[in-house]
Computed example of a mutant assay.
Amino acid sequence: MTKLSLVGDIGGTNSRFGLVAEGAMAVTRIEKLKNDDYASLEDVAAAYLRSQSISDLEAAAIDVAGPVTGEEFPLTNRDWIVSRTKLKAALHCQRLVILNDFEALALSLPHLGRDDLVQIGGTEPAKPSVKLVLGPGTGLGMAALAPLPRGGWLALPGELGHVNLPVVTREEFDLREAMTAPGTVFESEFAVTGGGLHLIYITLARLAGRAPLLTTPEAILQAALAGTDADAVKTLDHFIIWLGRLAGDAAMMMQAHGGVYLAGGIAPSIVSELRKGPFRRVFEEKGRLDLNSVPLYVIVDDYPAFKGCAAALQHI
């Protein structure tokens, strides 16, 4: 009987798991568990395996939201300490690989099909070229995927969310100043994330002398898309422009002619605005360097990181 391998996508709020057969990319028996119900990554992974009546694994590939360093390391948005030794013991697996969440997303890119993507301009390159994946959610993550000389790909995790927010106009400078706490450097993920949507919104309302009516990023997005709240509409405008500018900066620095892919929960929900608004124009506005041909994609697959984890399993 073919042994199964585990794939896991561990966020701050939820953990998602699935199973793959040896050498396969298809992920089955997907389940989402709330992290608040468990004391550790070992506990939530073991709970999933019990629910699937799995007691023995061939291998496991787990991606986590945060830097993956050393034998033990903390998650960025969860008070869990990840231990390679404890996790491998809890999973009863022969082989284990732990990935950064955007590293897993980068590894998924060659395995995404047409139905998994919405393209926003640009053209596909004639030969394998550097690709980037980035995306706003709880944080603002990024990773590059570089083609290897003898075939295959190398994923390179990055930290786009911690660069300075790229402001250009006088209005943007004033807004960033109003959002900045004294003595701090304003990082991009303070604005281009779910929490950033809320911060932009309440700051715009305060500057206009109004009390903010909406209290969550989800409500702000819904009102912006429906056009029912002027501050929400302006919030989304700033968000899209900054996202486009950051994506263009990253593409320019890495010469990502293979494309820039937007991941996470926010980008798919605003595809219509990204396609019709200034997003593509702002992405391309880089002075002497030409980004006109670089394709932009929004990933609409529900579980792209699982594809990256499945790909990683084939190399451990």
Results as ranks from 00 to 15, higher is better:
residue 1 M to A: 13
residue 3 K to T: 13
residue 5 S to N: 06
residue 8 G to S: 13
residue 8 G to T: 07
residue 11 G to C: 05
residue 19 L to Y: 02
residue 20 V to P: 06
residue 27 V to P: 01
residue 27 V to A: 09
residue 28 T to P: 04
residue 29 R to D: 15
residue 30 I to Q: 14
residue 32 K to S: 14
residue 39 A to Y: 09
residue 40 S to Q: 10
residue 42 E to R: 04
residue 42 E to K: 03
residue 43 D to Q: 12
residue 44 V to A: 06
residue 47 A to H: 05
residue 49 L to W: 01
residue 49 L to F: 03
residue 53 S to F: 06
residue 53 S to V: 09
residue 54 I to S: 04
residue 56 D to P: 06
residue 60 A to G: 07
residue 60 A to S: 03
residue 61 A to F: 10
residue 61 A to C: 13
residue 67 P to H: 14
residue 70 G to M: 04
residue 72 E to M: 13
residue 72 E to L: 15
residue 73 F to G: 03
residue 75 L to Q: 06
residue 78 R to G: 09
residue 80 W to E: 05
residue 80 W to K: 02
residue 84 R to T: 11
residue 86 K to M: 09
residue 90 A to W: 05
residue 103 E to C: 07
residue 107 L to P: 00
residue 108 S to W: 01
residue 117 L to T: 01
residue 122 G to D: 03
residue 123 T to S: 11
residue 131 K to T: 12
residue 136 P to D: 04
residue 136 P to N: 03
residue 138 T to C: 10
residue 139 G to F: 06
residue 142 M to N: 08
residue 144 A to M: 09
residue 150 R to D: 15
residue 153 W to K: 08
residue 160 L to A: 06
residue 162 H to C: 13
residue 164 N to H: 07
residue 165 L to Q: 04
residue 167 V to I: 12
residue 172 E to Q: 13
residue 173 F to Q: 14
residue 190 F to G: 13
residue 191 A to V: 08
residue 194 G to K: 07
residue 197 L to G: 01
residue 198 H to A: 15
residue 200 I to S: 03
residue 203 T to Y: 04
residue 204 L to K: 09
residue 205 A to S: 09
residue 222 Q to M: 11
residue 223 A to W: 03
residue 224 A to R: 02
residue 224 A to Y: 06
residue 229 D to T: 07
residue 236 L to P: 01
residue 241 I to P: 01
residue 246 L to F: 05
residue 249 D to F: 11
residue 251 A to K: 02
residue 256 A to H: 01
residue 260 V to T: 03
residue 260 V to W: 00
residue 271 V to T: 14
residue 271 V to G: 07
residue 275 R to Q: 14
residue 277 G to H: 02
residue 285 E to I: 13
residue 290 D to L: 11
residue 291 L to K: 02
residue 298 V to W: 03
residue 306 F to G: 07
residue 306 F to P: 00
